[in-house]
Every structure is written in C-alpha cells, then in structure tokens.
C-alpha cells in the first residue's frame, strides 16, 4: 500500500467522521445516536491505524485497538445499558430546529477550513488536510452539546468532541506519546462511568434527565 493510497483512505475516513458528526447533530432517536457514535469511533480507529502505518509509529496501533475497544464497544454498551435502565429511548427534543443546526454546522466547517489554512501550508505531513475536519468535529460536538437538552445526548456530544480532539492529535502530529493516549483513554472510560452514576442521581433529584430542570439550582434573585 503506497503512502498516497493511505492518505486517500485517511481522507475518506475523515469525510466519514465528519458525516457521522453531522448525523449526530440531526438524529432524533437515542439508539440511532448511539449507533452513529459507535460508527464514528470505528472510523477513528481505522484512521488511527492507517496513520500508524504511514508514519511508522507503531504505538498508534495500540491506540487504534484501544479506540476500538472503548469507543466502539464498551462506551456504547454502557450507554445502551443506561438508556434501557432509565427508559429514555424515546425521541430527543432539540432546542434549535434541525435545518438551522445544520446551517450553523456547515458554517463551522467552513470556519475550520479557514482557520487551518495557514497550518496546511506549513505542514509537511500527509494527513495535514484532515486537520480542518478534526477541528470541525470538535466544534460540531460542542454545538451538539449546546443544542440538545437531554443529559445523555449532551454526553454523547462530549464524547464526539473528544473523538475530534483525538483525531486532531493523530492527523496534526501523528499522535501523542503512548502514555498520554493511554491516560486519555482511561479518563474517557472513567468519565463514562461517572456520567452513568450522575444520570441516576440527576433523575432521582429532578425526576427527569432534561437539563432545563437544573435552572432550579440557580441562586434566587
């Protein structure tokens, strides 16, 4: 496999990641969201493996396997378990309607390309073109956290954001040192557990997982 071909495949993976990020923005069903998130993790894992092959940094293979294990299997499984336990598989409400969200998302992607243009000119890495996509994924994750009102969807948005960061790390610098990546992976796992516990707590306190309810926590005027 030549380097050019690998770069092409990586670009396709980047496109797919961006596509799933948009999919996460518009998907209304809880299970649908979960599946899209798992797909995003899978693309990320493949992309990491390809970057590892191209750069010869073999510890990236370990990162790739970790991503596969955590973000494709374990975390979706935990969330799946939570959704079943909490009976929240109904449709998800959004604060902003879907077309508007999409338009904002597109604007953010263009903005990311505009931002990373100087870096693309300076960098010599084969993966440099995907940096904009990574940045866009981060922003789309944040956008998803803003536009959704359900706690679980916000968590998925956060995890998608983390995916974007991870992608940015591999595409901009051929990955971080293994120790850092191991640490990050472990953090994500622990975060997923903590979120799970918090969901139960939030629901027993507010009888709902709608974060709008948390306005009650505001200081009285």
């Amino acid at each position: 496999m030549s380097i050019n071909l690998a770069a092409q495949i990586n670009s396709i993976m980047a496109a797919l990641i961006l596509l799933t990020a948009f999919g996460l923005l518009v998907q209304r069903r809880m299970y649908g969201l979960l599946h899209l998130f798992a797909w995003q993790g899978l693309f990320l894992s493949v992309s990491t493996a390809i970057v590892g092959y191209v750069s010869g940094a073999h510890h990236l293979y370990i990162s790739s396997i970790l991503t596969l294990a955590l973000k494709v299997v374990l975390i979706p499984y935990i969330l799946h378990f939570l959704i079943r336990q909490l009976h929240i598989h109904k449709e998800v409400e959004q604060l902003v309607n879907v077309p508007t969200t999409m338009l904002i998302g597109i604007a953010l992607v263009i903005f990311s390309y505009y931002l990373t243009a100087p870096i693309r000119e300076l960098s010599t890495l084969v993966t440099r073109s995907t940096l904009a996509v990574a940045l866009a994924t981060v922003m789309l994750g944040l956008l998803m956290m803003i536009t959704r009102r359900h706690a679980v969807t916000q968590i998925i948005g956060f995890l998608a954001l983390e995916n974007g960061l991870f992608f940015a790390a591999t595409s901009a610098t051929y990955g971080m040192p293994l120790v850092v990546e191991l640490g990050v992976a472990l953090d994500i796992l622990i975060a997923a557990f903590i979120f799970g516990i918090f969901f139960f707590q939030i629901r027993t306190t507010f009888d709902s997982l709608d974060v709008e309810q948390m306005t009650k926590l505001k200081e009285e005027d």
């Binding site: 604060l95 922003m139 944040l142 956008l143 956290m145 803003i146 536009t147 009102r149 916000q154 974060v211 709008e212 948390m214 306005t215 009650k216 926590l217 505001k218 200081e219 005027d221």
Partner: peptide, 16 residues
Amino acid sequence: GRLQQGYIHVYLIYSF
C-alpha cells in the same frame, strides 16, 4: 449576576 442563567446551554454557548 445576570450572566448566570442556570441553563447549561447558555454556559456552553459562552465557552463556545
């Protein structure tokens, strides 16, 4: 104090 609305979304928008 008006900045503090109690909506998580508003806080997220601030950081965004």
